[in-house]
Amino acid sequence: MSFKDSIHLNTKLGYFEGEIPVNYQYTLGVAGNIFFKTLMEKDEFIASECSECGTKTIYPLIYCEECFAPIEKYVPIGLVGELYSYTHCYYDYQGIRHEKPHVLGLVRFKGVQGGIVHRIEVKPEELKIGMKVGAKLKPKNERNGGIDDIIHFEKV
């Protein structure tokens, strides 16, 4: 059985336009605050360290994902990590083509779970998985507690 009518001429199809008129303000959270405040003030990445199983995690959490213990310790891990993977992006998120491709990479830190995804500024011929890269930060007075306080990662 099927419906008794159908529309075969798509120009007869009507539609109604609307939107969901909301915007969002996300708090950084307890662990997020510790991470971004430390980055703003002390030029350092912070990882959470589980006092039960020893797992370190970046971005830090208030709990250990492995054993669910509450985190009591946050440890500095510097600004230098290893390039774990990367990609050349030709279009931005709205589908507009970049003048030259952007390199986006995942940076990991020794002995730490997780990592940071960010822009990578390295000469194309030097770009290599496993290379050491460090975060270049904005001048202190321009930081506002977000991921853009990091300009990019570059070769060290």
């Binding site: 708090t27 959270g29 662990a31 959490l61 054993c67």
Partner: peptide, 26 residues
Amino acid sequence: RAEETGPEMAYLASKMALDQAGLKLK
């Protein structure tokens, strides 16, 4: 308005429930 993120709030309640039950996440 919570400072905590969604996952942080979920953790605080979940951990408390497990502690009350005498269980671990495993």
